[in-house]
């Protein structure tokens, strides 16, 4: 009898297959590998039932984790749809690290790639916002760039300087007014007018313990986005000015000052000194 038993490697591979197997289209639970069923003592309860405890634990704990990260998304989709969708997602995308705070990155894309949600672009926008907020919350703490570091640069070198993003900063560009939709979903106060509002440009950062969310004008968004893509302050100012929808919308001094007052940059690199 003992010779029939799977070795540890096979036992663990069969456990993985059991936990990650898809539920059948008819809702039927998939049968675990025969070797694993034979390896588990029944002792009054069929091995299938014993193994199902772990299948359920995997799904429910990860669905709960996703529901915590994507709380507004869940409210917009309805808990029943969200949980059913998440149940398929967790089996198709098992965690690759034991840190659950890192889990769920591909979830907004999975929603976006679902044909049935093609008319629900605003939900995808909210999901992307929630993942960005989650990432910002867990991003490493770092001191914010002090304005004096920038003003200390020789005036003729500021334009060539590079600004590094603070680790907690995330930029969000959305088709829908995602800030209002997110807030509305959490307060159970979404109304149809929100779907016809202006596209959103947002910046997230975490000065200390709490994530802060602020709107940006489209030109300011283009400026910060260009900085984070590696453009110098001078080049990014040009990008910001080109993105202005009205004359004089982009003011370099004002935009830089507003960013320095928030936790947007971690460091400045004076390329004139390299």
């Amino acid at each position: 009898m003992l010779l029939m038993q799977p070795n540890l490697s096979t036992l663990q591979a069969d456990f993985r297959a059991t936990v990650l197997a898809d539920t059948g289209a008819d809702g039927a639970e998939p049968a675990p590998p025969a070797a694993l069923l034979a390896a588990v003592n029944a002792n009054g309860i069929p091995p299938e039932r014993r193994l199902a405890i772990h299948r359920n634990h995997f799904a429910t704990t990860l669905i709960d984790a996703l529901g915590g990260i994507f709380e507004a998304t869940r409210a917009l989709l309805g808990p029943e749809f969200f949980d059913a969708f998440a149940k398929c997602y967790v089996r198709a995308h098992p965690p690759s690290t034991p840190g659950l705070f890192e889990y769920g990155e591909a979830f907004p894309d999975a929603l976006a790639n679902t044909p049935g949600l093609a008319d629900h672009g605003y939900v995808i926008d909210v999901a992307r916002l929630e993942w960005a907020m989650h990432e910002s919350f867990h991003a490493p703490a770092a001191p914010a760039l002090q304005p004096s570091r920038l003003t200390a640069l020789p005036a003729d070198q500021i334009g060539d300087a590079l600004l590094e993003a603070h680790p907690t900063v995330r930029l969000i560009q959305a088709t829908f007014p995602v800030h209002a939709l997110w807030r509305g979903a959490l307060d159970n106060a979404v109304d149809g007018d929100m779907l016809h509002g202006e596209p959103a440009h947002l910046i997230l950062s975490r000065p200390n313990l709490d994530v802060e969310l602020a709107p940006l004008a489209p030109a300011a968004y283009a400026f910060v986005n260009a900085l984070f893509a590696g453009q110098s302050i001078g080049q990014a100012a040009g990008t910001g000015a080109s993105a202005s929808t009205t004359t004089g919308e982009f003011d370099l001094g004002e935009t830089l000052g507003a960013c320095l007052a928030q936790t947007v940059f971690a460091d400045v690199v004076n390329t004139g000194n390299i």
């Binding site: 540890l8 993985r16 936990v19 772990h54 995997f58 965690p95 690759s96």
Partner: peptide
């Protein structure tokens, strides 16, 4: 155990109490 290959199964899964498992 929780990890099988590259996947974490988010659980404390049971081991057989064998010499092989003990050595591992």
């Amino acid at each position: 155990f929780a990890r099988v290959g590259a996947d974490y199964l988010n659980d404390l899964l049971p081991l057989p109490y064998t010499e092989e498992a003990l050595a591992q």
